[in-house]
Every structure is written in C-alpha cells, then in structure tokens.
Design a protein around this nucleic acid. Sequence first.
DNA 1: ACTCAAGTGGACGGGGGTGTCCGCTACGGT
DNA 2: ACCGTAGCGGACACCCCCGTCCACTTGAGT
Lengths: 209, 209
Amino acid sequence: MLRSDAQENRDRVLDAARSLFSEHGLDVPIREIARRAGVGPATLYRRFPTKQALIDLAFAREVKQCREIVRNAWADEDPWRGMCSVVNGLAEINAQNQGFVDAFMTASPDAIDFAAHRADMLRMIAELCRRAKHAGALRPDFVLDDFILVLMVGRGLSAAPPDVRRTAARRFSALTLDALRASPTTATLPPPVRVTPAVLANWGGGRPI
Amino acid sequence: MLRSDAQENRDRVLDAARSLFSEHGLDVPIREIARRAGVGPATLYRRFPTKQALIDLAFAREVKQCREIVRNAWADEDPWRGMCSVVNGLAEINAQNQGFVDAFMTASPDAIDFAAHRADMLRMIAELCRRAKHAGALRPDFVLDDFILVLMVGRGLSAAPPDVRRTAARRFSALTLDALRASPTTATLPPPVRVTPAVLANWGGGRPI
DNA sequence: ACTCAAGTGGACGGGGGTGTCCGCTACGGT
DNA sequence: ACCGTAGCGGACACCCCCGTCCACTTGAGT
C-alpha cells in the first residue's frame, strides 16, 4: 500500500504523462512529465522504472476504449455499421492521442494486456469483416491486412495541428469507409500488404520510443 | 569553383544524405552521414552550414520529380487519369523516401524553390480537381484540402518496413482513389479540413527536424 | 508528541547529438 | 619540383536526455 502523498504523486504523474503524451507524442522527455506533475525525476522513476511502463499505464485507458469500440462493433447486428464505428472510433482515438498507435504497437511484452487485446481485437475485426463481406457491404477484395494499413496511415492524423484533428479524423474515416464500401464502380485493387508480425513490429522502424 | 577533391566529397556527402534520409528519415545524425560519406564532420558542415540546407539539397531531386508528376498529370487530357497518376506518384515517393513530406513541408524559407513548387503544384492540382469534377469522375464534395489530408496521412507509408513499402503504397493509393472517385453509392462527407498555411505549417508539430 | 521507514528532489555521471576550431595535408598553378 | 592556400578531419565545448544515488523530509502508527 502506498503512502497517501506517494499515491497522489503517482496520480499526478500519470495525469501529466497522459496529457503530454497525447499532445506531443511519446518522445516527451521524462523530466518534462515530472516537471509538469510537480515532482522530481527520482519520484517518477521509482513508480515507473522505465518509460515503457509509464507509457503502458498512461494509455491503458485508451486500450480499454479501443477494445470496447471493437467489441461493440463486433456485437452489432449490422456488420457494416460495426465496421464504420470501428474505423470512426480508431480514427478519433488516433486524432486525440498523438502516438497512441505507437504505444499500442510497441507495448512491452510484459504488458500482457496489450498483446492479448491486440490479438483479440484482430480476431473480432476479422470476423466483422467476414460478416460485412457476406452481407455485401464490404468490398470482397478487402483483407484484414488492409485494416492494419488503414490504422497505420491513420497515425498521420495525430500529427495534425490540434484545432483540425477531429475534423481531419472524421473526414479521413468517411473517405476511408467510402473506399472500403462495396460499390459497382470499384476498381480492382493491387495486391494487399501481407502484414506479418515481423512487418507489424517494424512499422515505424520500431523506434518510436 | 571547388577544388576537385572538395567537389567529390560534396557529392559523396549528398549521396550519403540521400540514402540515409530516405532509409531512416530526417533524424539521422549528421555524423552518421559524414561517416557514410567517408569525410569528417567539419567537411560536411563547411559545405552545408546547417542540417536544413543539407536536407533541402538532398531532396531537391524528389521535389523536381514531384513537380514533374503534377505537371504531367495537369497536362493529361483525361483529368481523372491525371489525378490517379498524382496520387500514385506521390504515394510512391512517400514510400521510397522516409521523411520526404516532412522535408517538403519544413523546407527553409530561403530554399525558394520549395515554396514556389508547393504553390505551383497546388495550383495545378486545384485545376486538375476542377476538371475531374467537371468530367464527373471526381466526387463533387472533394476539396483541395482533402488532397493535403491524403498527402499528410500518406506520410505513414514511409514508416512501413522497407519490404512492404511499395505494396503498401500501391494498395493505399488504389484505396484512396476509390474513395475519391465519384460513385452512386458515395455517402455524404463530414466537413473538410480547412488547410490554412498555419495549419499546414503545424502539421507534424513543425518539428521533424 | 515521537519515531522511523517510506518517500522526496537535487545532484551526479554517462551517452549522444550539434556546431566550431586548429594544426596538418595535398591540390593545382607556376 | 615547388609552394600557397583551399581543404581536411580529429578534438573540443556545449546542450539535452537518461537513469541512479544520497542526504533530507514527512506521513502515519504508537
């Protein structure tokens, strides 16, 4: 059990980390977070021995939110509506949290939740895609890897200036969904990216941290 | 006039910079470039007093290529084919040159070419869009700012691992074009991003360098 | 009130990045 | 072949960030 002052400091650090990470990305100096929290560096390091640990905890909320979005979409009886809310929701999170995808992708192996969530979410999304295709709403040549592709390029949204991020996210997801929608005028696509785990791990050079 | 050895060193530095920048992005250490070129840091700094100057020159070729792509597209009698080649071409450049868009956007004010090229290209693209819309090929609610949006999220392509970049670029541009194509099933879009110069300058936090 | 361990922040050493200085090297005109 | 000078690269000073250590402070149990 933490002493009361220690607990409060820990909370303040997490708050500062959340706001700084989502505003400036993952490469904020640790000291800056400590300063914002009104705490010395040592205090921060004692609670979060490594930057990765801090990141994991700072983004835990968003990971939960992510999973929630996907689960709801998966449970939706209309698979296309599900797809839409997934794409919209992830774009929104991307826009509001600079570096969230990076955090999500580079989550440390011991943050078991992350890996489990990732796998789980991908499974649900895959099923969603299958159902949406079967319903004739999703273009038949769409593959799960395309979803990753969309997610990865969506990272660019978080780089948009704060005042246009939400607009950009909404516009982006609407355009993306139009691309994904089954449509009579749809052209044949070039071959999809095969997103193996290795490919995924190396997206972004694996060095956002 | 440069002495012959100096000239050769300068060329080697530029070559090294090009290959390192496109492979690892703009945050390659200057020393690394010097090392790769087989010269001392001082030599590099004498020819290119600031990192920005080096970046400007290293990417000059791609800027030219960019302009060329747009000019050809602009000259194309079929505006939609023009749009396609622009989107394809830019995605390709993005995929092959990590950090190219960053370089393009953050080009120093004195690298006049950049600003001029940007403005010029945007003008041509705007006209292309108008013609494509008029021909009924481009969705009517598309605005020029959407083009910037696509360009900006396309940055994410350069972060893909080298072995999938071209595939990713091709797939991405094909999907994007499907989103831009006028189509009977197209949904109404949310409001577009208003990409003012300030917005543009702040995209990416203005700090890729 | 007293005590003492948990908690704290300033200070330190290490690493890596940038840009600059200076004594040596070697190109190229004579 | 010689020599003046442009050119060179190693060494330097500076800054920022990371992670750790240690003497001091303070919460909370008695």
